[in-house]
């Protein structure tokens, strides 16, 4: 009989991806209401330190799998290894954080076991003893309450930032090694070294004030008015992805899941609708100001101050006011 929660721990270059601790925290909160046991699994090579760090969390057990084929992440390698771990440990719920890595393998893993993955959830609650998961649809404009259907294990991933990893409770879990079988036929992807395109010249993560521009600016030449506002504020200039894709600003100014993550005192979002990929990069800001013509834009969900209107009128007025 399947029961318990299994949490997938992601790591790179010998370090835990801190986002995985958010799944640990989510598991602790769910278990607090359901009484389930929690285990965590670390796959890789030379992962003793990572396993020990995770074993310092309030969990029942930590499973480690050391295998040559898991030295570097591949979708095939992790899928087959994790599937064998699940078959050996029989969890009812597998929790993951919705990182790029999880997006790459988790749908395959769930499908290979003929099970459901409810992906990119933002919260859970227990209704009549059953977990209900909330996920965003239409790029955050609407929310949906969803329950997984069919046999367990159910797979659920939580959006980055949904739970506080630093609030995960400490404890002492036992660590035990599991064995899986992998070979060259199973692992078809051959990854090369990870690399960065260009050295990030600007470290926006330390900037106290950030003025950020998005698609609403319409044309490259219009960015000048936002630049002037940033200068008047003494703030760093940043952008959402479409601006950097168009090369209107360099990529090292990009905020979001594929760019930098920031938590400044002030984040001013100008003409940024607030796609999830952008929000995960800035929602930790202490004060958020949003200027957008669309009152329904998701950016207003997280803004402290909202201005619905024409940025081409409001931004120059703000610059003038800031210079007073």
């Amino acid at each position: 009989m399947a029961n318990g929660i299994l949490v997938y721990i992601e790591h790179v270059d010998g370090k835990i991806n801190r986002a995985s601790l958010e799944a640990v925290r989510a598991a602790q909160l769910i278990a607090g209401q359901t009484g389930q046991e929690i285990s965590a699994v670390v796959l890789g090579q030379g992962i003793g330190d990572i396993a020990n760090e995770i074993a310092g969390k309030k969990l029942n057990s930590v499973y480690t799998v050391e295998n040559d084929w898991l030295k570097t992440y591949t979708a095939d390698g992790v899928t087959h290894a994790l599937r064998q771990v699940i078959e050996q440990t029989q969890p009812a719920l597998v929790l993951l954080t919705h990182t790029y890595e999880v997006r790459d393998f988790a749908p395959k893993l769930a499908a290979s076991m003929n099970r459901v993955l409810v992906g990119d959830c933002i919260s859970f609650r227990i209704e009549n003893g059953k977990a209900v998961f909330t996920r965003q649809v239409f790029q955050g404009k609407l929310a949906a309450d969803v329950v997984p259907v069919g046999d367990t294990p159910h797979f659920v991933s939580f959006q980055i930032g949904s739970y506080r990893g630093d609030e995960s409770e400490a404890g002492q879990a036992s660590v035990s090694a599991l064995t899986v079988n992998l070979d060259a036929d199973l692992v078809r992807q051959q990854p090369e070294e990870r690399f960065k395109e260009a050295k990030a010249a600007v470290d926006l993560s330390q900037a106290p004030l950030i003025v950020s521009v998005g698609r609403g600016i319409k044309e490259q030449k219009n960015i000048e008015i936002v630049k002037q506002l940033a200068e008047a504020f003494g703030a760093e200039l940043a952008a959402s992805r479409p601006i950097c894709d168009n090369e209107w600003l360099p990529m090292d100014r990009q905020i979001g899941s594929s760019g930098q993550t920031v938590a400044p005192k002030l984040y001013m979002a100008i003409g940024i609708s607030g796609a999830i990929q952008h929000l995960v990069g800035m929602k930790g800001a202490r004060t958020i100001v949003a200027i957008n013509k669309d009152p329904e834009a998701p950016i207003f969900e997280i803004a402290d101050y909202g201005i619905v209107g024409d940025l081409f009128e409001i931004v120059p007025a703000l610059t003038a006011e800031a210079k007073k």
Binding site: V116, V132, Q136, A143, A144, D145, V146
Partner: peptide, 14 residues
């Protein structure tokens, strides 16, 4: 494989 119980305009966190 999943049931949508309800869809709604999200409550503001702020």
């Amino acid at each position: 494989r999943m049931e949508f119980l309800r869809v709604y305009v999200p409550q503001k966190s702020k």
